[in-house]
Write a protein that binds this DNA or RNA. Sequence first.
DNA 1: CCATAAAGCTAAGGGCATTAGCCAGCAGTG
DNA 2: CACTGCTGGCTAATGCCCTTAGCTTTATGG
Lengths: 211, 211
Amino acid sequence: MPTSGVPVPRAGLSRDAVVRLALEQVDAGGPTGLADLTLAKVAASAGVATPSLYKHVGSLAALRRHVAVVALGDLTAASAAATVGRSGPDALRALARTWRAYALAHPGRYAATQLAPDPDAPEEAEHREAGARVVALVGAVLRGFGLPDDRTVDAVRAVRAGVHGFVTLELAAGFRLPEDLDRSFDALVEMLVAGVAALADPSSSPAQEQP
Amino acid sequence: MPTSGVPVPRAGLSRDAVVRLALEQVDAGGPTGLADLTLAKVAASAGVATPSLYKHVGSLAALRRHVAVVALGDLTAASAAATVGRSGPDALRALARTWRAYALAHPGRYAATQLAPDPDAPEEAEHREAGARVVALVGAVLRGFGLPDDRTVDAVRAVRAGVHGFVTLELAAGFRLPEDLDRSFDALVEMLVAGVAALADPSSSPAQEQP
DNA sequence: CCATAAAGCTAAGGGCATTAGCCAGCAGTG
DNA sequence: CACTGCTGGCTAATGCCCTTAGCTTTATGG
């Protein structure tokens, strides 16, 4: 009895195993780990000829998508863990920091996070749902701000845009001075916190000039 | 007398001509136009064998960089035109809208805009400078807010991150509902305006809760 | 014990970038 | 006016890669 009881035949290697090896390669490749992901390398690391992978994976694009699903799951779990028990500005700060920390710690996986699933393809439903879960989580965190319903979308988008933009630029080495990135990020997060709060309470209009 | 009078030998084709053809291909390819840029296709559109391009271009990566320089120039020019004669919040709004408009109108070139030049490679100096010019322009626009010197970086980064993040997500079809994107973007821009103003005048602290 | 389906393999085709080395013209110079 | 040399084009070849087709082997379940 080599393994469990269902469909595990001989050499070992399965969709999950292939994805695991792909994740290793993505993780090892830094920010370009996803772009550098290659069936040839995964096959080599599995000790198998390249075409053999097609018994488990479908295509390189499909493998990338599987990586994306895992990465989105990671991010959802980390975000949920970081925000549980918090609400309002506190929760938003925790969410933003977790997001950035994840991106910096796993740049390749974070890149995978940004793959846009085809809205129609039925085989990408899992991918779409994984993405929707993260976005929903942002919405949930923002619920603590008491936003009017029709403004929630705007707030979610602003938060996603701000954090994603910062992290993207940071990973792409788009900023000079390596110093002070933490402080700049904090400043951005405070802008978002204040901005979302303002969206929730339009009476407190933005500070225009000094009084 | 086939052409003008300086260095145009026989068939016609030069670094600039090759870059021009590359730009056409990038423009025709939508958001993935840059990624889909290929020496083979450029050569075909020039009516030339692929290796011939190496007499003008160096490599595919170099061609991409030349495209990036052009795109950064476009963006600088558009931004300068949009912000001249404005200052403070007004200028920042104009800058942000111009940026987004450029990205939506020329997604392939906008993607080129995000290529990070090697900080050391001497042959990428032109690329670095083109990038620095755009960033400097953001700094100039923000000068109207009277930010303390040591906070300017934070503000520039927040603005770049917010706008770039939004546009990236929008291009990647990362948002659902095609409607209301304009309003969401406006909301983000107002957050940035208010946030930068707050950075300039820390006494007006963010609205925490409703009073 | 045997049939069958799954999981591997090799072979082959089609892209692509890149390097090496050849050839034909045009531009000057002696 | 002839010659020399540069320059921009070419073909050939290498080495990656993804992907498809079809064969072989193995393990499993009846």
